[in-house]
Design a protein around this nucleic acid. Sequence first.
DNA 1: TTGATCATGTAAGTGGTTACATGATTAT
DNA 2: ATAATCATGTAACCACTTACATGATCAA
Lengths: 179, 179
Amino acid sequence: MKAYNNTTYSILGILTTGCKSGYDIKQLMDQSLTHFWKISYGQIYPTLKQLTENELVTVTNTSQDGKPDRKEYNLTQKGMDALKNWLTQPVEQLPVERNEVLLKLFFGRHQLAEQTLMQLEDYKSKLEQRLQTYHMIAQSIQTHHENDPDSKYWLFTLDYGKRITSSAIEWCQATIESI
Amino acid sequence: MKAYNNTTYSILGILTTGCKSGYDIKQLMDQSLTHFWKISYGQIYPTLKQLTENELVTVTNTSQDGKPDRKEYNLTQKGMDALKNWLTQPVEQLPVERNEVLLKLFFGRHQLAEQTLMQLEDYKSKLEQRLQTYHMIAQSIQTHHENDPDSKYWLFTLDYGKRITSSAIEWCQATIESI
DNA sequence: TTGATCATGTAAGTGGTTACATGATTAT
DNA sequence: ATAATCATGTAACCACTTACATGATCAA
């Protein structure tokens, strides 16, 4: 079985959630996976084309009233198998976050303390915004997707985001105080 | 002033810490910045070349006894200015971590509970290892770099790593228990 | 003599973003 | 009319990793 990259599997996975078009996929990505996986149309459309060629999905042109035509993609058995097989594969290594704030802080000696503080304050407020967003998404899942079989797992990933973001905020505060 | 990417500035920054060669830079990266910035020789050497051409650094061929020849790079005034200017620039957006474990968990509905648990256990143990490493690095900085003017900032970034990793471990445990 | 460490570099390939290009439909 | 949303796609470019290539020096 050909090995695809994680982004390709993420698209395959999203096709199991009711999203059918490239546009749908982007929407869901931006709403739900945005804190740990983010992709652009420049990846989505070519990938869907490739998945079609490799028969992991089928495509149908559909017309809707009130909206432009679109293409609906559906997983084939082969596609579902590929997804499930990927899910069983152990994750080989921890992800490396690239954090520009930490990078700048690392060289903080060459900066005025005020400037460092400003960076940290700014970072903190962005994190607080993000935390807010996570709370809102969690709320929305609990109300609108109460019976969705996926919701349990979606809330797990959101919980991760909330915990990580909270401790990053705490770190900001602690660092600001001790600079 | 030409805009470089963060990786280029990270190299510029490391050249202020006593590291002088491409090899040195890689060593320090792997020891200290590895949890929030990681680069390969494939980036380091071409970047050093470019920085030399643009006169942000100067290069000297030096021979050492007991070790092969090497090239020593030193920041010019122009290079130091570029670094400091970059440090003042606000960070425009939060980094997006790409987390394969979360991605798989997001599609956990298509997996057996045992499998999900195994992934989480595995992730947790990798995180615990990482946390251990952070503690050791912090210790080593406190003993070997006590008077280093950079150490304060290095410990800040390590503290970030420790906090984030700890809460990720807690999340793993909580999720394992509620799956 | 062989493996570890020190040291520098390139080429091919992958993965990804951004900007661009197009066009339908609907509400204002 | 015109802006917003829905919808699909490509081309140029950037960033990065991996594999490859080379070679010095030293300790076991």
